[in-house]
């Protein structure tokens, strides 16, 4: 039904940690400019799936394509060969990721955090990277705090810098791993606002979240996961209002 090729395509993704099978065959499609929210209890595999997308974890079987390209592997015949580090880095650079615990570089100022990767990875001239970094910080409302170190920023401000840092690499796809879970309740709004702005600008996003309100208002698609499988997916408003699966209903009744 979709006219365009998917930005993210997952086919039968399996992942195990030792004896524990975390992902038991995930099939997903995210169209360009689409915002997909992943919901599910902890341990359901949603974060692991996100980490597989940019190859922070290796999949055991299945395929993950971003913009039609396998992320960490090369397909020869029907076997997957892990790519050389340089090529993995090149493909990762096209996927932005925002972490639950921000993971800003504490020894760099907000501006340096945002400008670092374009200079170090893309070999951009410093002036160009710094100018874009300032623009991105302005976009998340933190231009005035450019020279602050992460420790001098609130959690919400740190997360907004982290979003700007990921955007600095001009990614095709943004991954959010529970971006508001580590924040004080009154700081959640400013981060969600920044993400909403990003969605309105047409960024393709996959968001692991517990913010049902955000999923309903901003999400184009909602996927509910449990036990390493996709239990249910659809338009957020419908899934939240009328879950078809008992497992989804039980989960939603607890978090709503």
């Amino acid at each position: 039904m979709r006219a365009t090729a998917p930005m993210l395509l997952a086919q039968g993704v399996h992942k195990r940690f030792g004896a524990l099978e975390v992902l038991r065959g995930i099939d997903l499609e995210v169209a360009p400019r689409e915002v997909m929210c992943l919901l599910g209890p902890s341990g359901s595999g949603k974060s692991t799936f996100l980490r597989c997308v940019n190859h922070l974890e290796q999949v055991d079987s299945g395929r993950l394509y971003v913009d039609g390209v396998l992320v960490g592997y090369e397909e020869r015949g029907d076997r997957l060969h892990e790519l050389h580090e340089r090529e993995v880095c090149r493909r990762r650079a096209e996927i932005g990721m925002v972490f639950q615990r921000f993971n800003l570089f504490p020894h760099m100022t907000a501006l340096e955090n945002v400008a670092a990767a374009p200079v170090l990875v893309k070999k951009e001239p410093r002036a160009v990277a710094v100018e874009r970094a300032a623009r991105l910080l302005d976009r998340v409302g933190l231009l005035a705090r450019s020279d602050a170190y992460p420790s001098q920023l609130s959690g919400g401000q740190q997360q907004r810098v982290a979003i700007a840092r990921a955007l600095a690499m001009q990614p095709k796809l943004m991954l959010f791993d529970e971006p508001t879970s580590a924040l004080d309740p009154e700081l959640v709004g400013e981060v969600l606002d920044a993400m909403r702005g990003l969605a309105e600008d047409g960024m393709t996003m996959v968001v692991v979240t517990h913010e049902i309100g955000f999923a309903r208002e901003v999400g184009d698609a909602l996927v509910f996961m449990d036990g390493g499988r996709v239990v249910e997916s659809g338009v957020p408003r419908d899934v939240i209002a009328h879950p078809s699966q008992e497992r989804t209903r039980a989960f939603l009744s607890k978090v709503l």
Partner: peptide, 21 residues
């Protein structure tokens, strides 16, 4: 913290750069 390495990896930095910078 290993989160530092992961953040740097997600930005496409190679191992040597992550170690040095």
């Amino acid at each position: 913290d290993t989160g530092q390495t992961e953040a740097a990896q997600s930005l496409g930095m190679p191992r040597v750069v992550i170690m040095r910078k």
